[in-house]
Amino acid sequence: MYAKSNGPEPDVKVGERLFYGLISTGEGSNSCVSCHTMHTADTMNWNPSAVEMAKVAAEMDLATFKEHLLTPSGAMREKVHVKYQLDDEQLFHLQGYLKELSETGAKDKPMSINQLLIFLLLGGLMTIALVDLIFTKKIPYKAIHVLIIIFGVSFQLKIVAHEMIDLGRSEGYMPDQPIKFSHKVHAGDNKIDCLYCHSNADEGKSAGLPSAGLCMNCHQVVRNGSHSGQFEIGKVVDAYENNKDIEWVRIHNLPDHVFFSHAQHVNVGQRDCQECHGDVENMHILKQENDLSMSWCLDCHKETNVNFKGNDYYKTFEALHKDLAEGVRDSIKAADIGANDCMKCHH
């Protein structure tokens, strides 16, 4: 809870109702939560989350909070906040709720029915069918019991098999990042080359992440995002000016027993980033496009042609160069030069 003062205390429940639009905040205005959501979704919400916005509001006095909300600077907020009409008492209660939210955080997102519940439900149905088949014998048709048991066991085995196969894989992983960064805006709309930000991909094991200083090469000038306004870019500026690291969340992560080199693939193999990472230039929210399983890598090595011509890295494969020249082979696959040898990745 936020610190108590000697004056009147805000009614947090009233503030919560104002935030959710259960009490009018002005004719034709949107509720706060319609923009500043409690929980993230699969699509990019360019506005600050409710908790982020609450932390900012908690640091303001009431007069600054009023100015920030009712007469905001910045084109994005001006457009949205223009219809807000709140008196000082409502603002006092709303800020009180935001102060509490900044400390407690958002409540956990309600759980939806998932495979675990289906698994348990089927287990219950099979148990009932088995008990009735052997003991109670209320239903005279044994075929019904057998069908329930066969279907239940089959479906459960399928779930278990898929969960075991997916163990350690993160296909579709799309975590929240500390800054709402869009690859579509940067790599797609603005045509920034991948290696400008991930400069180590050409020569190192890891692709590397850009420092705040590199970001500031553009954001010294660009201080308003085309979608996000000032808030997200302000985080970059703050990190740069205060010499803080931006704690990005890693998305593509192989097990510790697997060796992978970006340089081997990007520089030597001359592979495009999209082959592994998907259509990145059209992703607002970056996600893991492929499962990165061993079979996925091995299949790629079996199918991918190696460009021997003009690449000094492959000049030691004299026999293969001879086969190409004499027409014995029309192509060389990555697997042909040892890409699928166990020790290449597990040494």
Rank of each mutant, 00 (worst) to 15 (best):
G234S: 11
G234Q: 01
N243S: 12
S295T: 09
N282Q: 12
V266G: 00
Q274R: 11
K309Q: 03
H257C: 09
C273N: 08
D272M: 06
K302R: 12
N267Y: 08
V237I: 15
E303I: 02
H252T: 00
Q264S: 12
S295A: 12
E241D: 14
K287E: 09
D299K: 10
G278Q: 08
G269R: 13
E275Y: 08
N290L: 12
N290K: 14
N242K: 15
N253W: 02
V236Y: 15
E247H: 08
A239V: 05
M283A: 07
N242P: 14
V280M: 14
V249S: 01
V268L: 14
E275I: 15
V280N: 04
H284C: 07
G269S: 07
D279R: 04
N311G: 00
D238R: 15
D299T: 09
E275D: 13
W296K: 14
L298N: 09
I233F: 11
D245P: 05
V249H: 07
F308N: 01
N290Y: 12
F260E: 00
D312L: 12
C276I: 06
Q264P: 00
R271G: 00
Q230N: 14
V237G: 06
S293Y: 00
V237C: 08
Q230P: 06
V258P: 00
N243I: 15
N311A: 02
M283C: 09
H265T: 04
L298G: 03
E247K: 11
E275H: 07
H262G: 00
D272T: 06
I285M: 14
V236K: 15
G278M: 05
D299H: 08
H284D: 15
E241G: 01
H252G: 06
I246C: 04
N267H: 12
Y313D: 05
A239D: 00
V306E: 03
D291N: 13
F259I: 08
Q274C: 06
D291K: 05
N253C: 08
Q264C: 08
G269E: 05
E289C: 13
V258I: 09
S228H: 10
N311L: 01
M283W: 00
L292E: 09
I233Q: 03
R271E: 10
Q270I: 02
F260S: 00
N267L: 10
Y314C: 05
G234V: 01
D245Y: 06
Q230H: 15
V266Q: 05
V280D: 04
G229E: 04
Q270Y: 00
V236L: 15
E281H: 10
Y314V: 01
D299S: 11
S261D: 07
Y314K: 03
S228T: 13
H262V: 00
K235N: 08
C297R: 07
M294V: 15
E247Y: 05
E247V: 03
S228Q: 14
L286Y: 02
N307K: 14
D299C: 07
D299E: 10
D299Y: 03
C276Q: 10
V266N: 05
N267T: 05
N243P: 14
Q270D: 10
I233W: 09
Y313I: 01
D279F: 12
A239R: 03
C300T: 10
M283L: 07
R250K: 14
N267R: 13
H284P: 01
Q264H: 06
L292A: 11
Y240R: 07
E232T: 09
S293A: 04
H257M: 07
S293H: 01
C276N: 10
H277S: 03
